[in-house]
Design a protein around this nucleic acid. Structure first.
Lengths: 118, 118
DNA sequence: TTGATATATTCCCATATAGGAATATGATTA
DNA sequence: TAATCATATTCCTATATGGGAATATATCAA
């Protein structure tokens, strides 16, 4: 089996940096495809393809406006990511970092000193 | 160019469901590889391979303990994910959902009524 | 209808998997 | 040293890209 499809879920979809860039660009509000092309300096087909992936996992919505297609974020599909990663939030708080540092120091000592004397 | 390496960053590393399972299993504390094998019902080589990816992006740390290798979470590498997704948090709050619903209704109306009469 | 603008899709290809099986490496004990 | 337990690595393969180029589709203007 190969890697899961990028359209499998939001986790896979936003693992691609360009797609996160697109979402960041859309954070300011609705945008047409060509706006995104200009903002990100990517080729138009690439942008359309990324937008399609984002649409398939429900992270963006589209709306037709004349010959343009306006995309906007529908962040509800991002909630599972937030919910998952939130569980680890305490692991990078300052106090936890200090704990980590202590554990790492202990580990180093363990390695460096085979028993203590000589 | 193909997809980015899973070891490129934490986003790619945790896009794989099994790796999130492993992290979830490690949330309870340090575990040996075989513990994870038993807990998750995966093959040992697969677990070792996933652990390697997680290690390469810095999400887990290892410690040698006799013939076992004890893995534990170092969530600091997950912070970028949290930071990124947190910017979209407001987009799934209840009030925002209501706004989305309104916008979607407007869009539907737009489609349904080509002009009004006839 | 013809031309122009805005997007989407298709084709092709190099690349990076993720899992299964077999095997290698390391540490512990008899 | 041999046997064993715990992990890691290698080899193989099917699969899913993501980008570039070319092209198709849709809408608006003349």
């Amino acid at each position: 089996m190969a890697r899961a499809a990028t359209t499998a879920d939001a986790f896979n979809a936003v693992a691609e940096p360009r797609r996160r860039q697109i979402l960041d660009a859309l954070a300011g509000g609705e945008r047409a495809v060509n706006d995104l092309v200009r903002m990100l300096g990517l080729a138009q087909p690439q942008v359309s393809k990324h937008l399609r992936v984002l649409r398939e996992v429900g992270v963006v919505d589209v709306r037709d406006e004349g010959r343009q297609r306006l995309y906007r974020i529908d962040g509800r599909a991002l909630k599972p990511i937030h919910d998952w990663v939130k569980n680890y939030e305490r692991s990078w708080t300052e106090r936890f970092d200090q704990l980590e540092a202590v554990l790492e120091d202990l580990e180093q000592e363990e390695k460096g000193a085979g028993g203590g004397d000589e």
